[in-house]
Amino acid sequence: MTSLEAVSSYLPPTISVAELRDPLGLDDQQVRRFTRLYGLDRICQAPDQTEADMLLTAAGKLDELAGQEDRVRYVIRAKGLRTTAPYPVSPLQQVREALGLRNATVFSVADHGCATGLLAVDTAGTLLEADGDPDALALVLAGDKTFTPFSQWVADVSIMGEGMTAVLVGANGPRDRVLGYHARIVGREDGIIDLDPEGAREAKRIYQDVMSDVIHCALDDAGLTMADIHLVLPHNVNRVSWTVAAKELGIAPGRIFLENIAKTGHCFCADPFVNYQSARELGLLRPGAAYLMTSAGLGQSFAAMVLEH
């Protein structure tokens, strides 16, 4: 059964939403909406660091990786964006070489937007199971650089941060075992993910219903109900969407971990793992408790994963 062997994060220094007013071309109303209504305050940014630098910093915090490099069979880059570095730069190959992962096959997964991190964990588990070696590991690297204007914010939705995470995945670990996973894309036939006015209206219309259905499908896969879930570790899109989701799911808002929204911004597909690490440090996950990771991304991609700590 797929398991999370270890999770580490790198959260670079932050800048306030107010300081991003001019760089992003925000007006006063938008600044107020992001801060007072959506709960955003500080946004992770690392303008002087490359994507490879940031990924290496996150992976370097994985104490469980030290001395186990030869066990890593796969390095999987979870990309919320299709392009995260200018050609021919390959941050993923740079990370593989710097970490000394000689036996690892490297590749990226994308096109699930900010839900790609959970897809990468599921992919890692599938490959490790097929590999048949109980000692084999996979390293999932999640998070993106906001190196284009398009990637820096989603109008009237969220502002993107540059936090990165490294997740060591095993085939049959003793804790943080994956009990259920479900993903869905409700995209356009032409594959365009830009939120034009019509697309934004459609995204808003379906968002809560599809997210709720995907979560319940993952719960069904795990043989559990929402009442069995101790904590929800979401993507940090904004506070309002999760206040509404709590009502839709029939749970108390306090069961959804929202503390990082104000501290990091929306760090693409790294969010659930950033929240996992914070929840562990705060003692919010008890042994044997079931918890839920969720995420959604541009292109109307949705994913949910149920795990047992």
Rank of each mutant, 00 (worst) to 15 (best):
D111E: 14
Q300R: 14
L26M: 09
W153K: 11
T35N: 05
G265A: 00
A227Q: 12
N172F: 10
D194C: 04
A110T: 14
S295Q: 06
S3R: 04
S9E: 14
A18Y: 00
G113M: 14
L298V: 06
I76M: 15
L62V: 09
A110S: 11
L26K: 02
Q300H: 13
D111T: 11
E129Q: 14
G100E: 10
L195R: 15
P13W: 01
C269L: 05
A290T: 03
G117A: 07
S90W: 02
R177N: 10
A200K: 11
R102A: 15
A58W: 06
F257E: 06
L219C: 06
A262N: 07
Q152W: 02
V237G: 09
I76K: 15
L40K: 01
Q93H: 07
D133Y: 04
G80D: 01
L119K: 14
D48Y: 08
A98S: 09
A78N: 05
D144S: 05
G161P: 08
G250L: 02
I256N: 06
H309Q: 08
E69A: 15
P287S: 11
E129M: 14
R255A: 09
L219I: 04
E129K: 15
S108D: 15
Y87P: 08
A115W: 02
V237W: 10
G100P: 11
E162F: 02
L139K: 13
F257H: 12
V178C: 09
Q208E: 13
Y276T: 02
A296N: 13
G187P: 01
P13R: 07
I229V: 15
A200V: 14
L285T: 01
L62S: 11
E51L: 15
C267V: 02
D271M: 10
L307D: 00
K145L: 08
G173V: 09
Q30S: 04
A120Q: 06
A290I: 00
A289G: 13
P12Q: 08
V89I: 07
G67Y: 12
A142N: 08
S9N: 05
S295P: 10
D271L: 10
K79Q: 12
V232G: 01
S301T: 15
V140C: 11
L258W: 09
N236C: 14
D28G: 03
I206K: 07
A222T: 02
A290V: 00
D63T: 13
S8C: 03
V274W: 00
L26A: 03
